[in-house]
């Protein structure tokens, strides 16, 4: 149990997917202009990564390993993730139009989000069990949500600041993201 808790906290803070592993930076920079949309993206990513961790573990363990086709995991996972996102989109569209319109374009965008594929591959390479994979996926996704919401909060504040002309827009955003990554380095020694 302690191991799972450590894995969970570690995946949020220490191995933060955006700020330590530098995966999923596209939505991190692209969808972080408002806290509201950032939260929407975070929720959608959490949902998809958790499900993808679960299903890709099953595909890997019960389809690829028996046939000794582990080397095909990248393409197999892309297949699984893409269809999963499509399926989730269909279901949400039918069952909860409110959630669907809130997530909007972000849902299909996750199909090509490298954070999802990245975490699934990390799960496999670290030889996690089913439970560990799901916990790691969920924690990582929460870490992603936290990072993107934090950045959105900072960006909303920056809006009203007096920034030198040359730093306006993306330059100041990249500097902010870089400083955040530096700050997260501070968690490195937390769990041995």
């Amino acid at each position: 149990m302690t191991d799972l808790l450590l894995l969970f906290i570690g995946s949020i803070l220490i191995n933060n997917i955006v700020l330590s592993r530098f995966l999923g930076t596209c939505p991190f920079l692209g969808v972080s202009s408002k806290i509201k949309t950032a939260t929407g993206m975070g929720v959608a990513v959490t949902f998809v990564i958790t499900l993808a961790s679960f299903i890709s573990y099953i595909v890997y363990e019960y389809l690829l390993v028996p046939f000794e086709l582990e080397y095909l995991y990248t393409i197999a996972f892309i297949l699984v993730i893409a269809s999963l996102v499509q399926f989730v989109e269909l279901v949400i569209q039918k069952t909860s139009p409110v959630l669907y319109s809130a997530l909007g374009i972000y849902l299909p965008l996750i199909t090509t989000n490298c954070a999802v594929l990245g975490i699934v591959i990390i799960n496999v390479n670290s030889k996690y069990t089913l439970l560990e994979s799901v916990v790691n996926g969920f924690g990582t996704a929460l870490g992603f949500t936290m990072a993107i919401v934090l950045l959105a909060g900072i960006r909303e504040r920056i809006q009203s600041n007096n920034i030198p002309k040359a730093f306006k827009g993306f330059p100041i955003l990249l500097i902010t993201a870089g400083l955040m990554a530096l700050a997260f380095l501070g968690f490195q020694g937390m769990i041995k």
Partner: peptide, 21 residues
Amino acid sequence: LLGGIGLVLGLILGVAAKVFG
């Protein structure tokens, strides 16, 4: 195997589009 996975997922999506469409 990959074709099979693709086919099964495709079928699921096809059915889902009909059911949830």
